[in-house]
Design a protein around this nucleic acid. Sequence first.
DNA 1: CCGGATCCGATAAGATACTG
DNA 2: CAGTATCTTATCGGATCCGG
Lengths: 151, 151
Amino acid sequence: MDKQEGTATLLRNSGVTIAGNEELKGDRKLQEIFNNANTIANEICPVGDVIARISDKWSILSIYALGAYGKLRFSELIHKIDGISHRMLTVTLRNLEGDGFIKRTVHAEVPPRVDYELTELGHSLMQQLSGIIGWAEANGAEILAFRNKKG
Amino acid sequence: MDKQEGTATLLRNSGVTIAGNEELKGDRKLQEIFNNANTIANEICPVGDVIARISDKWSILSIYALGAYGKLRFSELIHKIDGISHRMLTVTLRNLEGDGFIKRTVHAEVPPRVDYELTELGHSLMQQLSGIIGWAEANGAEILAFRNKKG
DNA sequence: CCGGATCCGATAAGATACTG
DNA sequence: CAGTATCTTATCGGATCCGG
């Protein structure tokens, strides 16, 4: 279930070069980043792993909900995020907490009360997600139209 | 399973108010977008659906590869994207093509040659992904450190 | 009210072999 | 080379019961 990689030795990728591709479009910077994010970095700095973790529907919506509302309890989250199940919210929140995106605060009271909120890291991720969701909102209609057109 | 949009009447969310949340942080705009992206929009403009589609590891890497290199054949893609299987690349490309993100060009020659490249829509998505991947690259180390620290 | 644990069906995804 | 079909395995996700 969990992938443990210990040693890391991060950011040792100075001499990044790309295979054989002379017919470029001049986006060498993008290509470096891609290579870095893909082949090489998967071992030393698992960008692919990070992407896989945050590119989950429930994670995105959870982060986004917390970003929009600031601080929510479990029951509030499950109400905000349409369609999420009890279990998936639990799993998602635990993952996000484990990666340092959200902070979980337990108030030892009766009835129990647990608050979730974004960490700094979570907020920085929120910035990116904001862009994606905004884009999806702006282009969703076009995508749908395209899908239907070619049935 | 399939949600048909039909009437649409998008962006009719002027009077969007949230349940019981007076302790806001002033991000009413974000909350509107969230609501729109989540509950409401899932029926008329499936932002959640779009998110689910593009928030796939292989989709992201495929788009990104095509964005970075401009135009690639099947075999080039499978070589660029580390770890993707023959089958998953096929499936991913089909989906992306079906949503209008990439264009597939078949050259009727021997040996067969098929090129893939981003559409305009694909390029606009690429902008967003660029932000995400850049973020993942910048913060990957921190995330890893956090994961290991609390192992 | 929060959430952990378990069972189990549905789906995704890798490996492999085959077609044009 | 590009793509399909099938088989098998791994993971996801819902339902439910339980405990703090």
